[in-house]
Amino acid sequence: MSRTGRSTGLLVAAAMVMSVAACTAGGGGGGDASCANLYTYQDRSYLDVSPNVRFTPGKKIGVATHTTCDDTGGQDESEESVSSENAYEVDGISPKVALAIGDTPETATFFAVNSGKEVPSEVQKLIDGS
């Protein structure tokens, strides 16, 4: 692996950890601070990894949900807004590791499972290849 690839991987891993910390830090309305890029699919959380990851979306496998949290203080604490997007397989990677989420496969964004640890090796390979 090149030095650039390792640096990119470390930056992505750091971003995932910071996103996890931000989404579990508490505050705002419902206990999650900033959850703009956090989706749930089959009881697993997924984070938007990188806009530059090259991937091929596969077939639609269901719906991923996004809970809008009030990290700016304008939402009533009793309100919880939930939206949903289509979830697609990512060719060559298990849905337990990564998903493509969006209205269509062509407009879907790459998301990786939020384990709070290192970036899964399958995801790292895509990042390194981008």
Rank of each mutant, 00 (worst) to 15 (best):
P105E: 00
L47K: 04
A22Y: 07
D70I: 00
M16E: 03
I61V: 09
S7D: 14
Y46P: 01
S45W: 07
L126R: 02
S7C: 14
M16K: 05
T56V: 12
V63Q: 13
G5M: 13
S2M: 05
S19M: 14
G129W: 02
E79Q: 14
D103V: 15
D32M: 15
S7A: 15
A112D: 01
M1R: 12
P51Q: 08
G102W: 09
S19F: 09
V20W: 13
N114V: 00
A33Y: 15
R6Y: 13
I93F: 09
K96M: 15
R6L: 15
L99E: 09
G31F: 06
G27A: 03
T8D: 08
C23K: 04
Y39S: 02
E77F: 10
G116E: 05
D71G: 07
G26T: 04
S50C: 03
C69M: 01
A112E: 07
I127H: 06
T72K: 08
E77R: 14
E118S: 14
F55M: 05
L47S: 00
T4D: 14
E85T: 11
T72Q: 11
N37A: 08
E89F: 08
T56D: 11
G62A: 04
K59Y: 03
E77M: 10
D103W: 10
V53E: 01
A25G: 11
A98S: 12
T107D: 09
S121W: 09
P120N: 02
A108R: 00
C35K: 00
K125T: 12
A33Q: 14
T109Y: 06
T72L: 12
V53C: 02
P120I: 04
E85H: 07
A108V: 03
A15K: 02
G9C: 13
A100S: 15
S19H: 13
L126F: 06
A25Q: 10
D128C: 04
V12D: 05
S121I: 11
G29S: 08
A87H: 08
T56C: 10
A36V: 12
L99G: 07
S84H: 07
D48M: 01
S78E: 13
R3N: 12
S45G: 06
A22P: 06
T107E: 10
Q42M: 11
D70P: 02
N52V: 07
A108Y: 01
V53D: 03
I93V: 15
V63I: 15
V113Q: 02
S84N: 09
E89N: 11
G73V: 04
D32W: 11
P95M: 13
E80A: 14
K117F: 12
G62R: 00
A15N: 08
Y41G: 00
A21T: 10
T72R: 10
V123F: 07
E79M: 13
Y88G: 08
Q124H: 08
V49K: 03
V90S: 05
E122F: 04
I127P: 03
S81T: 13
D91R: 12
V82A: 03
V113S: 01
M18H: 14
V113M: 06
I93E: 08
E89P: 09
E77G: 11
C69Q: 00
D32L: 13
A64L: 04
L99H: 03
S84A: 12
G27D: 01
E106F: 08
V82R: 10
P57L: 05
A36N: 08
H66Q: 06
G28Y: 01
V53T: 05
T65Y: 07
E118T: 14
H66D: 02
T72I: 12
R6M: 15
